[in-house]
Design a protein around this nucleic acid. Sequence first.
DNA 1: TATCGTCCGATTGTCAACAATAACCCCGAG
DNA 2: CTCGGGGTTATTGTTGACAATCGGACGATA
Lengths: 222, 222
Amino acid sequence: MPRRSAGSQMPRRQQVLDILRSEIVTGRYEPGERLIEAAISKELGTSRGPVREALRQLEHEGLVVSVPYRGAVVLDVSDEEVQEVLIPIRLTLESYSFTKAMELMTDDDFGELAKQLWLMEEGARRGDLQQVVEADLRFHEIVIAASRRPHTMQVWRSIWPRIRNYFVRYGRLRPLESNVVEHRELLEALASRDPEQMLEVLERHIAVPVPTSAGSVAGEAR
Amino acid sequence: MPRRSAGSQMPRRQQVLDILRSEIVTGRYEPGERLIEAAISKELGTSRGPVREALRQLEHEGLVVSVPYRGAVVLDVSDEEVQEVLIPIRLTLESYSFTKAMELMTDDDFGELAKQLWLMEEGARRGDLQQVVEADLRFHEIVIAASRRPHTMQVWRSIWPRIRNYFVRYGRLRPLESNVVEHRELLEALASRDPEQMLEVLERHIAVPVPTSAGSVAGEAR
DNA sequence: TATCGTCCGATTGTCAACAATAACCCCGAG
DNA sequence: CTCGGGGTTATTGTTGACAATCGGACGATA
């Protein structure tokens, strides 16, 4: 019984949200661009209500900023903030979640992880960065969800879209295969039920993506 | 020009949000209780729209959890998650914000800080925990806002209501006066423009509220 | 008596019309 | 030429009605 990407079995606002998020991350909507409720609702063939709620959700995900009576504009990713704030937050968050989840994960959960790992391999083989990033984050979300900590999950929901944005932008700087390898290690570490080793692998995995240390990225600075 | 608590100059959803948040933190709505849109809208004399948006915002603040077609229920504060996740997150977030803000703060910003400090003193003198906590968090929000980092501000918005909840619950374990003293130190450290010293004071201030280390709290465990 | 299917009430999801607000443009005065 | 006032318009905020969905009560059936 699929719960995600179910054509029309989920509320409209969810569909609208997924579409808009994807269009922001793929660059169809550029930073600074205004998102007008009426235009979007007409384009998606729905009313303004769901669009409105989706926009507010995007605001809580840090992808847009909205001010009363003036609407929502797309926010650009701040590499510095992602590296200095969001990634460290992610580390403390996942260190906690993974530890708690390790004791609670079922065979079914591990199955889901294996599935994401497979999707990641497939994506890596095809050089499909989008798919790799998608499976990557979904992998982590499964573990966080398995920890059954609502507050932690809540924080995750508010930061992962920005991290995804960041990965899609800078993911090409690292070979996709190494990402697959790291997640396989992560899966094995979880299955081993050894907190010590698991945290070591996790920390190494999360801390790694900091490409700007040698000033080699630059490029699109604004 | 006040932007907050302006009787009817802010959108209805904002008024509804403030009311509901306050009623959750004061315990009028207890954990596990359902929040029904129609009932709330009737009680507040507004339509369901703004109530709906306020509930969604509360969800993003981690105070309620809502599932499609079944509505929102009040979430209880998890002491463990606050201490192990939210507070560490707050530390990395504010370490960054305060550093960035120090170079950007205007005399007006410092004036606002002084104002909150005064309110805090006044509250402490009267033993008004609510007011002290209010001024405390507002103090920090002013600095974070002054750092002009939208993504950091966004994370702050999603965690401060839960931290406030936690403070209101356990704030009585520490004398209110020491809180005032710490913020005065913080203000002076910011004004000194010495990052080294400021971070030291900040870390000491944020790391302190961990009352359960000696197992002396317990009580309401669920 | 246990179980399954069906109906019903309560509640959320969606819609389209209307109200409120703020940005914009135009024009005139200095 | 600049600046300020006033109306215009594009856009968001709010409302009440209607549709979709869920959970439980009820009863038929084995």
